[in-house]
Design a protein around this nucleic acid. Structure first.
Lengths: 199, 199
DNA sequence: CGAGCGCTTGATTGAGTTCAAAAATCGTGG
DNA sequence: CCACGATTTTTGAACTCAATCAAGCGCTCG
């Protein structure tokens, strides 16, 4: 139980085995099958998820029924609707498993304990929040300023291994384009890459 | 000095006049003329700005020279490049004044003092970070899922008074469309509004 | 082994861009 | 307070990138 999470947290703050056991008293770890929902739009997000293995994603569904992926979370990433979790308000998002995954469920109890008992946790958590903001800012800027092709190239460098793990239609959804368009972008890139190889 | 900011901060946490004076020892307040730059791309953002009056905006400039507005900050709002400020890294953004403004410059010293001396400030700041995240998430979702018209309607409800204060080309930049397109969106809305009025 | 899902390809459509120019508005100095 | 130049907004026409619709291919997993 909690092996991956313990390893992860020890990279950030020092914590004894006993402390860790105390923190995790009300936490849980679950194996979730590909496709299972961990959070529904409209629900209050009561856990922040740590991905021990596998892959989760958060997304919205618009009025015409189309999914729009907000974030991917592979191993060692966090995922949550931070607003919903923090402000206890209904979530805008769905979160589900894009692969069979091992997920640690961390509730408010964990964060409260960690903040009071672990010196350095507050700093770590603040850093995580700032990373989240950086991530979103970059995303907004790309959506405002970059073409589909540029956004795809950025995606490849941001999530190099995901490119192989997730279906293309999910990448397209993340990029804000259709699967057909992504297919064409890739075709175009392959063509240009081939040409420059040939020289 | 700092009148507006004092009023603002007292809505959030309780602070005596003496405490406040101590906190603000290294802070400053400046009148900035419309158009003046407070932060340049590439600089490290050494202050978080509180807008006492007027209007600031943050934006990027892409390789073709086009501006893309990330955020507006009217009276009582904060604006900063939080990553650059927090991680002391070069900023992606420009920040300038869209109107003549009165701006409070808050550096790390202020935040350190506030966190140690004001109980409740940490909570307040954490809430501000979460608000910032909520704001960005909403923005990402709109850019992924909504048409230009929907984004404009959202803008009007989010910043009702700004609609009158900023030139349309800035709103267009914020929405990720051209000024010409925004003009057409507005024309279309006016036409539809007129029709429904007439009934 | 076949039904379904994901990916590709083609043809068409459409939302938004670009370029150009006119019309409206703003700000400033006389 | 008016006039003039500059900026902003509007309008038009042609164009472009990506969406949509539709069909076919290839895999895989049940």
């Amino acid at each position: 139980m909690f092996n991956e999470f313990l390893l992860y947290i020890r990279q950030k703050v020092s914590v004894s085995d006993e402390q860790f056991a105390g923190l995790m008293a009300t936490a849980s770890e679950k194996m979730v099958k590909k496709g299972s929902l961990l959070l529904q739009q409209g629900d209050v997000c009561s856990s922040t998820f740590f991905v021990a293995s596998g892959l989760l994603r958060s997304y919205t569904i618009d009025k015409s029924g189309k999914e729009h992926i907000i974030q991917f979370a592979p191993e060692d990433w966090w995922i949550s609707d931070r607003n919903s979790f923090y402000f206890q308000q209904p979530s805008m998002f769905f979160i589900d498993a894009a692969e069979d995954s091992k997920v640690v469920y961390l509730n408010h109890d964990f964060f409260e304990k960690a903040e009071t008992r672990l010196p350095g946790f507050t700093t770590f958590n603040s850093m995580a929040l700032h990373n989240s903001i950086r991530f979103m800012q970059r995303r907004v800027n790309l959506l405002l300023a970059a073409t589909a092709e540029e956004r795809y190239l950025d995606f490849i460098t941001l999530y190099p291994n995901l490119t192989l793990r997730v279906p293309q239609w999910m990448i397209a959804s993340y990029l804000g384009i259709t699967p057909e368009s992504l297919s064409r972008v890739r075709k175009e890139l392959a063509k240009r890459h081939f040409k420059s190889e040939a020289k």
